[in-house]
Simulated scan of single mutants.
Amino acid sequence: MFVLLAFLSLVIELALGYPDRLFRAVGHPVAWMGRLIGFLDRTLNRQDWTLRSRRAGGVVALCVLVAVAGGVGWALQSLLGAGAGLLVTALFASSLIAQRSLASHVEAVASALETEGLEAGRRAVSMIVGRDTAVLDEAGVSRAAIESLSENFSDGVVAPAFWLAVFGLPGALAYKAVNTADSMIGHRTPRHAAFGWAAARFDDLVNLPASRLTALLIVAAAWVTGAGSAAKAWSAVQRDAGRHRSPNAGWPEAAMAGALGLALAGPRNYGGVLVDDALMGEGGRREAMAADIRRALRLYRAADAILIALMGVVAGLLFLHG
Rank of each mutant, 00 (worst) to 15 (best):
F23A: 15
V237Q: 01
L164F: 08
V88D: 04
L62R: 03
L320C: 11
L4V: 03
M184T: 07
A236K: 00
P170R: 02
A231C: 00
A108F: 09
L260R: 01
L318S: 10
L173C: 10
A309H: 05
F195T: 14
F7D: 01
A263V: 02
A227N: 06
A278F: 01
G242V: 04
H321T: 15
S104V: 11
P29D: 14
A220I: 07
A198K: 13
F162D: 10
G17D: 13
E13K: 07
V11M: 06
G85Q: 11
A134N: 10
A290S: 15
A15S: 13
G171E: 12
G226M: 06
T133E: 11
A56S: 02
Y175N: 11
L80Y: 11
T43G: 00
A222M: 09
T89L: 11
T180H: 09
A222D: 08
R268F: 00
A174L: 10
R188I: 03
L213S: 05
T89H: 01
R35E: 15
I306W: 06
A230L: 02
V224S: 09
I293H: 05
L8E: 04
Y18W: 15
A165M: 06
S111L: 14
A265H: 00
L65C: 09
A159Q: 08
A56R: 05
G85W: 10
R243C: 05
L65D: 11
L65H: 11
V125Q: 07
D132G: 14
D182Q: 08
G117I: 03
T133N: 09
L149K: 06
A25N: 06
H105L: 14
V237E: 00
Q47P: 01
S94Q: 01
V157Y: 03
G38N: 14
V11Y: 01
V273N: 02
P160S: 06
L317I: 14
W251E: 02
F195N: 12
V68G: 08
P252S: 02
S53L: 05
A199S: 15
A257W: 03
A15G: 11
L10H: 02
V66S: 07
W163Y: 13
R298D: 01
S142F: 13
G168F: 09
A220Y: 03
L40N: 08
K232L: 08
G186K: 07
A296D: 03
G140T: 14
A257Q: 02
A93F: 02
L169C: 10
T50Y: 00
A220S: 12
I185S: 02
A134K: 12
Q77L: 13
L118Q: 01
S183L: 04
P29F: 10
A120N: 01
R131M: 13
L307Y: 05
G196N: 11
V11R: 03
A259D: 06
V157M: 02
N269D: 03
V68Y: 07
D41Q: 12
N207H: 13
L279G: 00
L318V: 12
S104P: 00
L264Q: 01
V66W: 07
S211I: 06
Y300M: 04
A134C: 09
I37W: 13
W223E: 13
